[in-house]
Design a protein around this nucleic acid. Sequence first.
RNA 1: GAGUCGGUAGCUCAGCUGGCAGAGCAACGCCCUUUUAAGGCGUGGGUCGUGGGUUCGAUCCCCACCCGACUCACCA
Length: 511
Amino acid sequence: MSNTESSVSEQHKIRLEKLQQLREMEANPYPHSFDVSHNSQYILDHPELIKEDEQELEEVERVSVAGRIMTRRIMGKSTFFNLQDSKGEIQVYIRRDDVGKENYNKVFKKLTDIGDIVGIKGYVFKTGTGETTVYAEEFKLLSKTLRPIPIPKEVETEDGETKTYDAFTDKEQRYRQRYLDLVVNPEVRDVFQQRTSMVQAMRNFMNDKGYMEVETPILQPIYGGASAEPFVTHHNALDMKLYLRIANELYLKRLIVGGYDGVYEFSKDFRNEGLSRFHNPEFTQVELYVAYKDYNWMMDFVEKMVEHVAKALHGSTTVQVGDQEIDFKRPWPRIPMFEAIEEETGKDLYGKDLSELKEAAEELNIELEDSFGKGKIIDEIFGEYVEPNLIQPTFITDYPIEMSPLAKKHREKEGLVERFECICNGKEIANAFSELNDPVDQRERFEEQARLRADGDEEAMTLDEDFLQALEYGMPPTAGLGIGIDRLAMIMTDSESIRDVLFFPQMKPEK
RNA sequence: GAGUCGGUAGCUCAGCUGGCAGAGCAACGCCCUUUUAAGGCGUGGGUCGUGGGUUCGAUCCCCACCCGACUCACCA
């Protein structure tokens, strides 16, 4: 929307005029700073700040608060309004005779609007109805808003419930103008606070173990580490094609070759695929690689870390997600993939060849494409019959080798690799292997991927010669892990859509 | 990509069978010094998502398109 005369709303025009008037009376509508001494939450939590009736004014501690005017009740020469800061809301009482006639009548009453950001200095008292309130001795406009903010009204009903009127609910508007969503919907601020707490809990957990947080390239000449369609870009000076990473696995493993015992990275990854309530083109994963460990050790680690996260966020191992209660208390069940499939479908697919798998898939009404190999067919059956039923956190272990070109062969079971996924609420939240460190085997796996690509599988991995070279210099036995941060955040915050845990989800432009 | 539903004032929403565009809050003017959806009296505010069509006349009916939500299919 442009600010041309014809397109601004009536209310916008009125505020532009108010801004002009403020400038003419030399009341700066955008001053440079304001000393804030207290926040709303602190004041409400500290009743000793409240002025007692018998107390002299000089003895009372002064507070200065700042924030946005949310509601206003003007009663002539005095006014109550609610001020919202980063921690919550507090009521302010302001009187003409305390803050000055011009300041009150003109600047505050005439030229200040709901939504404007103001600073207040004064003391804390309790009103006749018992509400802790800041009594304003000084009032200062800190930022004049030009657009009306869609502030909802709240009222407490007789049975003590809070009823909200005119809530800002339009999802499209909320996603496009997240800043307004955050101003107006406190539960949205909570969700993002929890997301940040979750990441911090994980970071602390890994730091406590002595693992090192690192940064690896986002722009990669060869994309790898996952099966996905990449975004492509171009470097002008080098005149070369570059890809936005779809994963950072191969770089972190190079660092394990380099001698670190444990490295991890919270990484934005990019996949050029469809959008849905579980998929955003850019999303966050944490990947962790630990030397001298295997996937059994990693299962223990994941259980401990996620249990720790649940406790850090909710003070308990249980989390309410929709109408399900999910309990992250360890240990979690560990079920080999083929056993899980047999349990749900009655079919034992272990050791079956391609034509037998195709037959089984048809009996199970799975639609197949010609390019599907053994791994893909098994994955389809698993995704259809098993995954959606796994609500409580569960490790599915020992995947077919065809699905996992970077995982080490199983030490006992032919045709399988030492890989697990953690499924929770019907979705994968973690994926891990005993990492393949045999450079000869790894080269063969890449070559197999090349054959799959030639047969039409566009997501098959590309051979990364430099990575192979790194393995040829020797990588210790290593356990590797990836956890989908957005997915885990959805579970931990009981959010139905990935858009609700991303500040700025991908949207089409409005026009 | 397919299906369903939606887009009307700053916000939340009505709008009948096609006949001058409505409400509450917000805004504007006046009154009001312990209110809390404060209150009282009064006033203004609209590209009805966009573009066509039918019609004397379209927010309403028809066609196309844009944007979104949800469901389904592929990827985490």
